[in-house]
Amino acid sequence: MHTAHDSPLGKTVTGSDCYDPGLLFPIARAPKRAELYIDGTLPLHGADIWNAWELSWLDARGKPQVATATFHVPCDSPSLIESKSLKLYLNSFNETRFDDHETVRATIARDLSLVSGGDVDVALHALDELVDTRIASLAGICIDNLDLDIDHYGPPCPDFLRVDTRAAAVEENLVSHLLKSNCPVTGQPDWASVQIVYRGMPIDRAGLLRYLVSFRRHDDFHEQCVERIYIDLLARCAPEHLRVQARYTRRGGLDINPWRASAAGTDPGNPRLARQ
């Protein structure tokens, strides 16, 4: 079984000047899901949306080409892909000749699907396609300006989560830009904005903010943090419908944006936020 500490993270690693899918490193999702009592049928739907901003290769005549790429890794894949290994893998394209853009796209889709064990969707974007891309915001009520004291920064504390059981069900989008966790290998900080879309008894906003801040000293990968938030909200607040997405800031030319939902077909899209 591959673990985070076996990965290239935190180590000096020599990359490759030519295409090398062997650089990709999978990390099994099952052990961390077991900590959340997820076993067997997943109580969630979703994907990990990666944006790759540094992608280049050589055309058939040796001239460099550049593009950006988006990868959708389904959450039901057995493994997530460790980010440094993906960066090294993409760098191995830099001095490799490919016949056309479609060959590059299909190669990446095949390799990521094989490593993750899921059907990974890959799209390449020419730079002129991005000219009119605007900075977006997560729709909803931002809870960051609540007037409250906070003194718990880890471990994540689901006891903060509560609902008003006397109130009628509501439909709300709640947003916070204060989510921070840490890489479980290097200890480097990971920063994110998070959106919680739900239908059910009103979630106490002060408790929710305290809960999100309690990830501040927590060590886990992006995907694992989002699943923990989703499962804790599901268990403590019992919403009729729930979707959690986090938009993480970029590192090494990559940003990772997991989302998890109680229903299929609720993809939140891929908006580019101010810190991305």
Score class of each variant (00 low, 15 high):
274 A>Q: 02
251 R>T: 01
108 I>W: 01
263 A>F: 11
247 R>A: 05
207 G>W: 06
188 Q>P: 01
45 H>A: 07
155 P>T: 13
257 N>K: 01
189 P>G: 14
1 M>T: 09
69 A>R: 01
55 L>W: 04
59 D>P: 10
258 P>G: 01
145 N>T: 11
197 V>G: 08
179 L>Y: 06
215 F>V: 15
271 P>R: 07
204 D>M: 04
49 I>Q: 06
73 V>G: 01
167 A>F: 10
76 D>H: 14
26 P>Y: 08
189 P>L: 14
60 A>G: 06
153 Y>A: 08
146 L>S: 01
208 L>T: 12
144 D>E: 12
16 S>L: 07
163 V>D: 10
203 I>W: 12
59 D>R: 11
164 D>S: 12
220 D>K: 07
60 A>M: 12
121 D>Q: 14
264 A>R: 03
181 S>Y: 13
177 H>M: 02
106 A>Y: 02
228 R>L: 05
117 G>E: 09
149 D>L: 15
127 L>T: 02
106 A>R: 11
70 T>V: 15
75 C>M: 03
64 P>A: 10
245 Q>L: 11
219 D>H: 13
273 L>K: 00
131 V>W: 00
189 P>I: 13
179 L>N: 05
98 F>V: 02
152 H>I: 15
201 M>W: 08
125 H>C: 07
194 V>F: 04
30 A>R: 11
165 T>M: 12
105 R>T: 02
249 T>C: 04
91 N>S: 10
39 D>W: 00
274 A>C: 00
233 L>Y: 03
123 A>S: 14
36 L>T: 04
156 P>K: 08
169 A>R: 15
146 L>A: 04
126 A>H: 14
103 T>C: 04
138 L>A: 13
250 R>C: 03
151 D>A: 13
52 A>I: 15
137 S>C: 10
161 L>D: 11
275 R>L: 01
124 L>S: 08
151 D>I: 03
182 N>E: 06
57 W>M: 06
62 G>H: 07
75 C>H: 00
18 C>N: 09
181 S>E: 13
131 V>R: 05
11 K>I: 02
150 I>M: 10
138 L>G: 13
80 L>T: 12
194 V>D: 02
200 G>T: 14
120 V>A: 12
129 E>P: 08
245 Q>D: 07
40 G>D: 07
210 R>V: 04
102 E>Y: 03
249 T>D: 06
4 A>I: 06
